[in-house]
Design a protein around this nucleic acid. Sequence first.
DNA 1: CCCCAGGCAGCGC
DNA 2: GCGCTGCATGGG
Length: 306
Amino acid sequence: MFELPFQSELLYDVPLNLEATLFCGQAFRWQKLGEDTFQAVVYGEILRLTALQPNRLLIGSTAECINSKSLRDFVWHYLGLEDDVSTLLPASFIQTYPHLYQGASAYFGLRLLRQEPFETLVSFMCAQGVGIALIRRQTTFTSQSFGDFIAITEYKFPTPEQLANAPIGKLTRCTNNNAHRARHIRAISMAVARGDLNLAQLSAPHCDFETARETLLRYSGIGEKIADCVCLFGLGHHTAFPIDTHVRQYLEAWFGLSTHTTSLTSKEYRRLSDAARRILGAEQAGLAGQLLFHYWRKDVKHMKAF
DNA sequence: CCCCAGGCAGCGC
DNA sequence: GCGCTGCATGGG
């Protein structure tokens, strides 16, 4: 393995299931280096996390931190360690669905990442009808093709300006050879670069969830699910409840929330996510939904996280 | 070979 | 408003 230019290292005790956290946040560029070691570029810095033992992380970062406290704050916020998942689900839920609470409790080490908004936006625009491995390949290749070099094989995620000026053919090779997707990503990058789309302004608490969602939905390439994902993972709107194929499955299996239509129309999407917010508590519905999502995929569908 | 993978837009009806 | 189709590719 190459030696990376780490400026600081920190050993820290955290109540965290590392794999579940990275999966939940769906930080698509996290790569698994070893059995318990993961590495990614986070806000332009290389971050490496190693689980030395349960609840004990070795954190390496290329960020030049004055002291360990600023690195601790950086990581603490990014990994969403301020959230307490063990008190997440409402008492009414625990009472009504004790078996689900029991099963999901194995994943209380899961957290909601605070990802960079533009990277979140583009990453989820690459997440249509493909598997996670293929999504990660797209975002990694996009960074290598258009982002600034950092070290060894690591590149920053491109800026809106870099993607706004991307030749469409070159960008298409980064988006799973999907030219529609490349055009959508370039168009929205131009909107961000010009200031027509201000992601910081759409972030909580300056902006309410519905406004942020409606604003994102105006852009081609963004539908209900991706708008919710960007709101949840990139803009801090934790009431957002993204419904994908897996969530739709468990909503029906566990809560009897089904649709008479085969495809999930806009109207039905809203009906289901509103119902889910009532069951899981509106305030933290997104994180609660991710908890059930992870439980569903791992224990019921027997899928691997990475 | 078939089906599914963290969907969305465009179209006909 | 609903349902079908194209988009591309890898893995089970």
